[in-house]
Design a protein around this nucleic acid. Structure first.
Lengths: 136, 136
DNA sequence: CTTGAAGCTCTAGTGGCTAGAGGAATTATA
DNA sequence: TATAATTCCTCTAGCCACTAGAGCTTCAAG
């Protein structure tokens, strides 16, 4: 049996976040001590680790709800899990593409070596979209 | 003089967002018509375009507050603008790095060709961090 | 048995909007 | 000019995934 603090240390999930997950229904309400404190089992630890790891990979709470549900039913086909993950991969790749464009643009405008704002490329570019090299 | 709707069309910023920027103090309260509707000048348009463009480049509202302030003072040295932009560039680059690691991981786990959840790599990897190839 | 750490609930705040209710003003058409 | 259609107004609440803080209770070590 773990206290919420021990669970937090073992999983790296902060205490208020654990309570938040409970509220969101991602983890079951655990048993309580006589004094009403949460007491977790090894299963609780496993489940929270799964959540933590999924969050690290950027899945949303709703994604995770689906993935958790699947993981409880080992006999099911895993195509659902795949489509969640593949969907997420597409999202990640889209974000990378956008950020790379942004990076190029920011690199370009920070090259400016003016010494006052009147002629500064950063300010100028922000004021005038036409100076941009790429769409964003 | 533009109505809020015209301003919105010209800048691509949604109407509630314009009002939100006003509330946040990013744009001045404009004059009003007799019937209390907002009426914007060309200056308002310019300022909102600046904001829109900066948001597109991912600057936060607080960044933009600083950049706007600078842009009003053309005689100032532009080192401040540069440090805001350079700082932001670093942030963007950090996010790209993280997302690329993520992408690798997601690609790897979605390669799984099991046909049920019991042996599915997606589920398995989420449950067990040790199966990951890289840190994230 | 005391003390200090850790736990409890509850409310509110974060950023950057977005949505909706319920009503007033403006503009276009008949 | 009357009316209909559209736009605008304010205000409140919601989104996501937490995070912070107040004010209180319980637990574990010495």
């Amino acid at each position: 049996m773990f206290s919420i603090g021990q669970l937090s240390k073992r999983t790296g999930v902060k205490i208020p976040t654990i309570r938040y997950y409970e509220q969101m229904g991602l983890i079951d309400e655990p048993e309580r001590s006589e004094g009403n404190q949460r007491r977790y089992t090894k299963d609780g630890l496993t489940r929270l680790s799964f959540i933590r790891h999924s969050r690290d990979l950027g899945f949303t709470i709703e994604d995770i709800r689906g993935l958790l549900d699947l993981s409880q039913h080992p006999e099911k086909p895993c195509s659902d899990a795949h489509s969640i993950a593949a969907q997420h991969l597409l999202g990640v790749q889209g974000r990378i593409t956008k950020l790379r464009r942004l990076e190029r643009e920011l690199k370009r405008i920070t090259k400016c070596d003016a010494d006052n704002v009147a002629t500064c490329a950063v300010i100028e570019t922000l004021a005038d979209h036409g100076l941009c090299e790429t769409e964003h």
